[in-house]
Design a protein around this nucleic acid. Structure first.
Length: 858
RNA sequence: GCGGACGUGGUGGAAUCGGUAGACACAACAGACUUAAAAUCUGUCGAUCGCAAGGUCGUGCGGGUUCAAGUCCCGCCGUCCGCACCA
């Protein structure tokens, strides 16, 4: 072996095979319904600039599945595209004076080139970019269909408002209650916006979770909790002064007699007038508005309230008057934006009542307590029990009490039983430029009129300026001024654009028929490909994107676009890519390429030899500077090494810690396999006919190889890719250790190497293809079927059985499989270690688990 | 605050069903080759006691079920993720 080829020349070899696959159009999916299909999809990237390790992990995982399924005979659809509308493009426009479209297209070009070096088995003919009119025109049509079907409507809702920049802020742009650029205290403002009626499908979206048996349980639970169906009641409290009612929602009507106050959200209509007359209340509402719109901020804030002075009558006991508070923890979006508080049986109400010295009346008696001597401790009682202090409901269980309370409310016309969901309708309006224009026209005479089909698409104007705050579409001198399609008079376009989740809610369908310019997609083609058989992406999308897509499929079905309700048959959520962090004494972060490792626990800067603290492994982020650029890795070690390391060390659903030494290890393995498999003597021998029989060692190697096929196949199907890599390494170790060099030995070695190459194909495709060609094959490995294990070689002729005494391991037995229990027991009792512990006595009990273990109880 | 997960050697992890804990790697250490280094190869590698044979302990902590628990149940502790305008 010469010096040149003793190390694997990945640069040349990887490029060569990518060109071959391109020329052969190896990964082109055909819309041929006669072939069994498999649709593998990874969540498409936002073109932020450069690919990061999270992308590499995501697409490597998907590529293993795609290549494995292709080899298993499926017509595989494995596409890639760009989720290319979004806030970062506008930020770049403001900060770097670059047009969002230019910025986005350049990023796509860069990232596409980077992705292509990874050797992914993608059908690039199906590439889509959501910011192009060819894509978004179809969702404008969909939206108009949704409006016609009653699935989209308009109402007022609240946004974060930056009073200095005069702009709507995303939650992300609100830092500690202030605008991220201006630093101004954020306010809430009400705007009229478009909503999609996802709640129309709340029950169906919830019930159908049970059918998603190839989804992770955690995602199913999260979605169920997000939708959160709760049965309860609306209850009307009469307002003492004017006879109007305050309508509240409760899940605990049984505790109505324990009510000691009502509370409303700061933006509840009831208090709108009070704010004008009472400065204290107006200040409190302003304070609540500063919390922003995120539920997290609201729920985390200290629970506070203010008495409005309004008094309401208890619906079942009209003599009792309750104070009405404005409370910062009541959400206008949930229920009716008003609650009644029962401090004795709810933690938050208890804290609130304690703080404002409101009465705490227990009405649920814990089982086994004495009603005459019962007192609540310093905690509310939230468990099951028997109602008391509750008039006609005394003695009922909590469940019966709920029913009795609802009956009484309905009889008094003071409320009724109801079902509510935590799920809220999806607000899709955004006051931004870089999104899909909402195809609506506002006419003073005709109201809101959809843009007629023949005028679609409504495209974004390209001549926009970002030098003044607010929405550039709104500032544009001409774009929004149009004639009303209905009356022909002067009218204005809607200047809001869609939430970018709109694009990602149907892109998987567009991939089925991406070049169709007439319609979003042909129904027959989509019905062939959908649902996606395997969807792969980050768990951060567990509720929003994945729920919106499920809703969208239903809405599209209702409008006649397609047949499936559930877009994703199988879902896999991968973990994050992490790296340790480096920090100097003055708190500055250093990136992995700016440091030098001195020992296991010490690092210094490259130049000044300044000592650095090594922090624990965290998600790669620009702010911590603990990012590793995939392009550097691919240039230094090649794509196969990067892919292999991504798959080796951690299970795909857990976080992966990126380490230099781990990559080195993968690189060493690539070279090891390269040396092991490039022996022409072995491949020539293997290409002869197999020998009639094998000696013991050759047979043992064949067993290892065929078990590897069986194991790796099962591991890939179950997403145990790290285990699959470990098995491949075991096979490679067995081949290395194998010493036979002639006759049946060398044939067996050739077979094992050939299996090794084929098992590596989904993980390190370039290396495998190169070795495959070197093994004398004429056809491409990507066109070669997945290997099949010989079932006769999967069983061993001896197995090891553990022998325990009182549950402790005392020895092992090597026996032939499936021996009668009595023989196994006798063999176990005959072991010296066992005899010594028995001391000549009889065991009390012997448990024999066939082919596994014997436990002797003395 | 609400919701969801995770916790096994120095490190990443393995352990279909409750049945030999630590596969496969990384790091470390020792050795071979080399003028030297790199690369490669060989060996050791949970803790502890012991010359050894071997013993004892050991899967975040405390209990429980079982012939047998990393795995099941109850209660804690710690870490991470999501929370509706980031994608």
């Amino acid at each position: 072996m010469t010096e040149e080829n003793s190390r694997y020349n990945f640069l040349e070899i990887e490029q060569k095979w990518r060109s071959r696959w391109d020329e052969a159009q190896s990964f082109k999916a055909s819309n041929d319904p006669s072939i069994k299909k498999y649709y593998v999809l990874e969540m498409f990237p936002y073109p932020s600039g450069r690919i990061h390790m999270g992308h590499v992990r995501n697409y490597t995982l998907g590529d293993v599945v795609a290549r494995y399924r292709r080899a298993s005979g499926y017509n595989v659809l494995h596409p890639m595209g760009w989720d290319s509308f979004g806030l970062p493009a506008e930020n770049a426009a403001i900060e770097n004076k670059v047009h969002p479209q230019k910025w986005t297209r350049e990023n796509i070009a860069t990232m596409k080139a980077q992705l292509q070096t990874l050797g992914l088995s993608l059908d690039w003919d199906r590439e889509i970019s959501t910011c192009e009119p060819e894509y978004y025109r179809h969702e404008q049509k969909m939206f108009i269909d949704f409006v016609k079907a009653g699935l989209a409507y308009r109402r007022e809702s609240w946004v974060n408002w930056d009073p200095v920049e005069n702009t709507v802020l995303a939650n992300e742009q609100v830092i500690d209650g202030r605008g991220w650029r201006s630093g101004a205290l954020v306010e809430k403002r009400q705007l009229s916006q478009w909503f999609l009626k996802i709640t129309e499908y709340a029950d169906d979206l919830l019930d159908a979770i049970a059918t998603l048996d190839r989804w992770p349980d955690k995602v199913r639970t999260m979605q169920a909790n997000w939708i959160n169906r709760s049965e309860g009641a609306f209850v009307s409290f009469k307002i003492a002064e004017n006879g109007e009612s305050l309508r509240v929602f409760t899940t605990r009507p049984d505790t109505l007699f324990g009510a000691s106050f009502c509370a409303v959200a700061a933006n509840h209509p009831l208090v709108a007038d009070l704010a004008n007359t009472n400065p204290e209340i107006s200040e409190f509402i302003a304070e609540c508005n500063r919390l922003g719109t995120s539920e997290e901020a609201i729920e985390k804030a200290e629970k506070k309230g203010i008495d409005t002075g309004i008094r309401v009558a208890h619906p079942l006991n009209p003599e009792q008057l309750l104070p009405v508070y404005i409370a910062n923890f009541v959400l206008m979006e949930y229920g009716t934006g008003a609650i009644f508080g029962c401090p004795a049986h709810d933690q938050r109400d208890f804290d609130f009542a304690t703080k404002y010295e409101l009465p705490i009346t227990p009405v649920v008696l814990p089982h086994g307590s004495d009603p005459d001597n019962y007192a609540l401790g310093d905690e509310p009682f939230v468990g099951d029990g028997t109602l008391f202090n509750s008039g006609f409901m005394d003695g009922l269980s909590v469940e019966d009490g709920k029913r009795a309370a609802i009956d009484a409310l309905e009889k008094n016309e003071a409320g009724e039983g109801t079902v509510t969901f935590r799920l809220r309708d999806w607000g899709v309006s955004r006051q931004r430029y870089w999104g899909c224009p909402i195809p609506m026209i506002h006419c003073d005479k005709c109201g809101i009129v959809p843009v007629p089909d023949e005028d679609l698409p409504v495209t974004l104007p390209e001549d926009v300026a970002f030098d003044q705050p607010g929405n550039p579409l709104d500032h544009h001198p001409t774009w929004k001024h149009v004639k009303c399609p209905s009356c022909g008079g002067d009218a204005v376009r809607e200047t809001d654009t869609f939430d970018t989740f709109f694009e990602s809610s149907w892109y998987f369908a567009r991939f089925c028929d991406p070049n169709n310019s007439d319609v979003a997609f042909d129904k027959d083609i989509v019905d062939y490909w959908l649902p996606v058989d395997q969807y792969i992406g980050g768990v951060e999308h567990a509720v929003l994107h994945l729920l919106y897509s499920r809703f969208f499929s239903r809405a599209l079905k209702q409008c006649g676009y397609l047949e499936v309700s559930e877009p994703f048959d199988g879902l896999f959520t991968q973990g994050m890519v992490c790296h340790e962090t480096y920090r100097s004494e003055d708190g500055k972060w250093f990136s992995p390429v700016e440091i030098e490792r001195v020992s296991q626990s010490e690092a210094v800067t490259l130049d000044g030899k300044e000592p650095l603290t090594i922090g624990r492994s965290e998600k790669m982020s620009k702010s911590r500077k603990n990012v590793v650029d995939p392009e550097n890795i691919v240039q230094t070690y090649g794509a196969d090494t990067a892919r292999l390391f991504m798959l080796s060390d951690s299970p795909p659903d857990r976080d992966l810690e990126w380490t230099e030494s781990g990559v080195e290890g993968a690189w060493r393995f690539v070279n090891r396999v390269w040396r092991l498999a490039s022996d022409p003597a072995v491949s020539n021998a293997f290409n002869e006919n197999p020998p009639a029989s094998f000696n013991k060692d050759a047979l043992a190697l064949r067993r290892v190889a065929h078990k590897a096929i069986d194991g790796v196949t099962g591991d890939i199907e179950r997403f145990h890719f790290n285990r699959a890599v470990a098995r491949i390494r075991e096979l490679s170790n067995a081949i290395s250790d194998f010493k036979g060099l002639e006759g049946d030995d060398i044939w067996a070695k050739g077979e094992a190497i050939q299996i090794l190459i084929r098992l590596l194909a989904p993980m390190t495709p370039h290396l495998a293809e190169e070795l495959w060609a070197g093994f004398g094959s004429e056809s491409l490995l990507v066109d070669t079927p997945w290997p099949k294990a010989d079932s006769e070689l999967l069983a061993d002729d001896t197995i090891t059985i553990a022998v325990q005494v009182n549950g402790k391991l005392r020895g092992t037995l090597d026996l032939t499989p499936d021996m009668p229990k009595a023989d196994v027991e006798a063999a176990a009792l005959d072991l010296d270690a066992v005899k010594a512990l028995l001391g000549g006595g009889e065991p009390r009990k012997v448990i024999v688990v066939p082919n596994r273990i014997v436990n002797i109880v003395v």
